[in-house]
Simulated scan of single mutants.
Amino acid sequence: MSTETKTKRKRQTKAEQRAESIEQILDTAEYLFSKRGFYGVTLKDVAKGVGVHHTLLNYYFADKKALFDAVFDRRAPVSSARRMMALDEYEKDAKGKPTVEGALGVFLDTDFDLYIEGGDEWKNGLALTAQVANSPEWGPEIMGNYFDPVVLRLIEILKKALPDCPEEDIFWGYHFVSGALMLTLARTGRIDRLSDGLCKSDDFEAVRQRMARFMTAGFHAICEERARERG
């Protein structure tokens, strides 16, 4: 260890040391949870990844669930707040004439931007979000606490873009959008194998260029079919 590094550590206050330790723990836990899920990770696994004794984790977090909640709470509010702001700005700019593709583009691009710009930490965080979203045990509660307001904001704008579309079809449309988004965020690698490397799970720019347009066509197809059924 260099003299400079030793001096830097000596200058750290206890609060700074504590904050640094917690950040290392959260980064490691986030990576492990994103790969193995909640039940596939122990506090000892996290401690080993950080390089500390597991009793240190018990000092900061009451149990594994408390650690998991702290990990999720770092990024979910940021993603939700950015989306809400972007949707509000979009509706204002649309001046009463929002489009499905415009609203979906804003909603989806927020997470793609975080993925592309945020590095591995955000990739791990959003992959973890995908796992939580697909957990019937406690996914609805956690996702609801963080994301229901912004999803309902999107639905509100989609209703204005599709005033003649039945409300249930708009909710189903969002359901399909959410499923595709969560699969993308999970980066399973399946499309890599299926396409023999032609498509990459982590090519978020390619997804950004296609998803909103693809889903927009689905919304219009369903709504137009329902309109024909009504005569």
Rank of each mutant, 00 (worst) to 15 (best):
residue 34 S to E: 14
residue 34 S to C: 12
residue 35 K to L: 15
residue 36 R to T: 06
residue 37 G to D: 09
residue 37 G to N: 04
residue 38 F to Q: 05
residue 38 F to S: 03
residue 39 Y to Q: 15
residue 40 G to E: 11
residue 40 G to S: 13
residue 41 V to L: 07
residue 42 T to H: 01
residue 43 L to A: 02
residue 43 L to K: 03
residue 43 L to V: 03
residue 43 L to C: 01
residue 43 L to Y: 00
residue 43 L to P: 00
residue 44 K to Q: 15
residue 44 K to I: 13
residue 44 K to F: 10
residue 44 K to N: 15
residue 45 D to K: 10
residue 45 D to T: 12
residue 46 V to C: 04
residue 46 V to P: 07
residue 46 V to I: 15
residue 47 A to L: 04
residue 47 A to I: 06
residue 47 A to S: 12
residue 48 K to E: 15
residue 48 K to G: 11
residue 48 K to H: 14
residue 49 G to V: 15
residue 50 V to F: 13
residue 50 V to N: 15
residue 50 V to E: 14
residue 51 G to L: 03
residue 52 V to G: 04
residue 52 V to H: 02
residue 52 V to R: 15
residue 53 H to R: 14
residue 54 H to Q: 14
residue 54 H to M: 02
residue 55 T to L: 00
residue 55 T to E: 01
residue 55 T to R: 00
residue 57 L to H: 11
residue 58 N to A: 01
residue 58 N to F: 14
residue 60 Y to F: 12
residue 61 F to I: 08
residue 61 F to L: 04
residue 61 F to E: 12
residue 62 A to M: 02
residue 62 A to N: 04
residue 63 D to K: 05
residue 63 D to Y: 02
residue 63 D to S: 05
residue 63 D to W: 03
residue 64 K to H: 08
residue 64 K to G: 05
residue 64 K to F: 08
residue 65 K to T: 13
residue 65 K to N: 10
residue 66 A to S: 14
residue 66 A to E: 11
residue 66 A to P: 02
residue 66 A to T: 14
residue 67 L to F: 06
residue 68 F to D: 14
residue 68 F to H: 15
residue 68 F to I: 06
residue 69 D to N: 11
residue 69 D to E: 12
residue 69 D to M: 08
residue 69 D to A: 10
residue 70 A to L: 06
residue 71 V to R: 08
residue 71 V to M: 11
residue 71 V to E: 13
residue 71 V to K: 11
residue 71 V to Q: 12
residue 71 V to C: 13
residue 72 F to T: 11
residue 72 F to L: 08
residue 72 F to Q: 06
residue 72 F to N: 08
residue 72 F to D: 02
residue 73 D to A: 12
residue 73 D to Q: 08
residue 73 D to F: 03
residue 73 D to C: 04
residue 73 D to T: 07
residue 73 D to W: 04
residue 74 R to V: 11
residue 74 R to F: 07
residue 75 R to V: 11
residue 75 R to H: 10
residue 75 R to A: 07
residue 76 A to M: 13
residue 77 P to Y: 11
residue 77 P to V: 13
residue 78 V to E: 14
residue 78 V to P: 06
residue 78 V to M: 10
residue 79 S to N: 10
residue 79 S to D: 12
residue 80 S to K: 12
residue 80 S to G: 09
residue 80 S to W: 08
residue 82 R to L: 14
residue 82 R to S: 07
residue 83 R to H: 04
residue 84 M to Y: 09
residue 84 M to A: 14
residue 84 M to V: 05
residue 84 M to N: 10
residue 85 M to R: 02
residue 85 M to S: 06
residue 86 A to L: 03
residue 87 L to A: 00
residue 88 D to L: 03
residue 88 D to G: 04
residue 88 D to C: 00
residue 88 D to N: 06
residue 88 D to A: 09
residue 89 E to D: 09
residue 89 E to M: 03
residue 89 E to Y: 01
residue 89 E to R: 06
residue 91 E to Y: 02
residue 91 E to V: 04
residue 91 E to W: 02
residue 91 E to T: 01
residue 92 K to H: 10
residue 93 D to L: 09
residue 93 D to K: 13
residue 93 D to N: 09
